[in-house]
Design a protein around this nucleic acid. Sequence first.
RNA 1: GCCCCGUUCGUCUAUCGGUCAGGACACCGGCCUUUCACGCCGGCAAGGCGGGUUCGAUUCCCGCACGGGGUACCA
Length: 449
Amino acid sequence: MAPETRVRFAPSPTGALHIGGARAALYNWLVARQSGGALVLRIEDTDRERSTPENVEQILDALRWLEIDWDEGPISQVERSGRHREVLDDLLARGLAYRTTATAEDVKAYKLEHGDAAGYRGEPSADGEGAVRLRVPDGDLVVRDIVRGDTTFQGRHLDEPVIARADLTALYNFAVAVDDHDAGITHVIRGEDHLSNTPKQLLVYAALGAEPPAFAHLPLLHGHDGKKLSKRHGAASVQELRAAGYLPAAIRNYIALLGWGDLDSETLITTDELVTRFDLARVTRNPARFDEQKLRWMNGRYLRELSPEQLTDELERFTGREGLAAGVAISAEKIQTLADFWPLAGFLYDGPVEDPKAREKWLSSPEHLAALAGARAALEAVEPFDVAHIDTALRAVAAAREVKPKDVFQPVRVAIAGTAASPGLFESLDVLGRESSLARLDAVLSNPG
RNA sequence: GCCCCGUUCGUCUAUCGGUCAGGACACCGGCCUUUCACGCCGGCAAGGCGGGUUCGAUUCCCGCACGGGGUACCA
């Protein structure tokens, strides 16, 4: 029987969860759910400066919001320092590692003497003090990677890495291997930025007398300009995406496709389908750009799959307002994100917005104002005040005045909404109701221009 | 500098030696239409360069160029 698949997501809590981290988390989650295995969450918090409880909570919060759940943890890496020390002492005792006071300058000097391609080889310090470096043999170190195939690193090019500080606290490349080994991790799925450091970790596994896990290094994500993803690229973190009005399901779908493609090129894939179809071996090897345009489109599709009740619920939570059902019903097909709703339909609740250009274009000429007056009279008389009858009444105004329907509709629209773009006009009037509609028209009529 | 990875339409991708190089977003045009959208139809658009291997290379190999990552007593 094959061993249970155990994967892990191990963010360092240095701030928000970035889109790249979210994708690594998602891929791990997909593998865990698909295999019936377990996802372990570990917080790489050995950098005391940056690892605050707030930062940790921010990451957990982002994962929960994305509905990426974990089976074990969160495990704090610092809390495992006792075990790190134990392994460290063992390596020291066995001569697999040594303490040295050699500095970066010494490493540089070594290369000057032995050549740039020669990995640093040091000697133990006489007093037994200093940082701990791992012994590196000259042979090949091959990283078996599901995404990229085998990558061979030659030990002779590798500097003997510092695996613990002079105070004997563990450093990343050491701690990560010990922790993954102890947690029984079978697949390490993480960003490509870790690929070059993997041979060091392989050495730690070897020292532990353990088989290394399978690796899967994911291509890095870039911004729309091809540069490294950063604040300048708009919404780059999960919390920013959330604030921008995206749905977790849409984000999951979108980032799953950033670096992975199925045989059939379906674009809209439910999370359940992703769980069954995802395949690490099909992850691409080249970096992908995060392009918000496609996410926007995709989010619109997900928004429109929600029931009116669900959408209303989402929007009320997003805007912090209540009683939005009627406005939501007439706006659903016009928005791509939750954030699009209020600019489009907020006028229904808070009155017309200011848009001098629209007012200039549709409410300044005598013809338009006359049309508006005609519309006002028609709306006052229409009975009942519903979409179908408003429709008929306003078209009649245009016909009577022998102008295009648009020349009646747009002035009315700008009068009630303030802008030239809105949900359907008749629908908007219907939601507003007769009294409120007439009041808005009157406000313009009594104060034109 | 050294080590490692990568390179198909503007973007995300399909293709695992023979394809009209397919799909999606974006863009352009059309239909629908009261605005904005949605929806539908159509269009534009790609294998970095140079060598090999092969009857035949986007696909395999080498070189170059370009991009990225690593090279911390960070993670």
